[in-house]
Design a binder for these strands. Structure first.
Lengths: 180, 180
DNA sequence: ACCTGAACACCGTTCAAGT
DNA sequence: ACCTGAACACCGTTCAAGT
């Protein structure tokens, strides 16, 4: 009963549910996350989950929140370097493809999301864009689009994506310099 | 049984199934497309669908194919005008959000997709990018990303997306001019 | 506080059978 | 050629009941 997480911190049953959900998500994709499989992974029956969690939507919303926090952390070190920011964005999304998909594709459950989380993930992008909202949205769209298409396997196997990224970032950097 | 479509052309039972699927998709989103509801819309029981279609994956693949053909058609008139191309891309995706989602997000079922369809949709983008593959991928990533985030409701309600698009396209245009 | 079995309204799909 | 009911292995969720 002294439930402890990997880092030794005390962990609620609810956190254990979310941890298991995150593992199943990364192993088998979004449709692998079923209440019955999740229960199974915890050695319990599906109805028991509802004592710790409202339902499946809440689980997905909680994972979205985790993803946003992790993204914010991963982007922060890039500072105001546009290229470093792009590299960090792509690296995180490639390392956590399912979680990235969950966090970026579905509408945020803004009711459920604690305030500030969304902004924290957006802030590094805005900063790398020199505080210009249009530039920030262009940068975000570009990074999201390239990563989403790459994760979906939509580019030819022999496509030189590093070159595409370099081209795109170069274009935005020039535009930003001219704007300043 | 002289089944005819909206344009008067003779239509196979299979096409009727796909038409109904497309309607359900656009009305209720991807998860509304169930074999039972689809059958219902056709006045038939679910098992009957399997006489006209292998299964649900084939239906989705067929809709993806339709989407790619429509996108190719929608983009063609833009010629080599980058801004016109971006406008056409965004307009189509906004007018057919569910179909766009279906066509862009999931891995293409390349086994099932007739050869040339994917290329036909990509060609106008490559052309607008002046034949430069890196520029084309940057343009595609940018357009897809902005549209995907917009359709997912990820921008603030008061965001000036026209301005973001203008900024992004301006950046790519300058880069393209310098490259030439 | 935590877990259970039984049940409900759903899924996609198969199959033997009917016209 | 086209459709059917019954069935199977799944879903998410509720609820009364047990410790």
């Amino acid at each position: 009963m002294g439930a402890r997480g990997a880092n030794g911190a005390r962990v609620s049953r609810r956190d254990e549910v979310l941890d298991a959900a995150a593992r199943i998500l990364e192993d088998g994709g979004p449709e692998a996350v079923t209440m019955r499989r999740l229960a199974d992974a915890l050695g319990v029956r599906a109805p028991s989950l509802y004592k710790h969690v409202r339902g499946k939507p809440e689980i997905l919303a909680a994972l979205q929140e985790r993803a946003l926090r992790q993204i914010a952390e991963a982007l922060a070190p890039a500072g105001d370097d546009l290229a470093a920011m792009a590299r960090a964005y792509r690296a995180w999304a490639r390392a956590n493809p399912r979680l990235y998909e969950l966090s970026s594709r579905r509408p945020l459950d803004r009711e459920r999301l604690p305030p500030g989380v969304e902004e924290a993930a957006a802030a590094p992008i805005l900063r790398a864009a020199g505080g210009d909202r249009d530039a920030a949205r262009a940068l975000w769209g570009l990074a999201h689009g390239l990563v989403d298409l790459e994760n979906a396997g939509r580019f030819p196997a022999d496509a030189d994506l590093d070159a595409a990224w370099a081209y795109a970032i170069g274009a935005l950097r020039t535009a930003s310099a001219r704007h300043a």
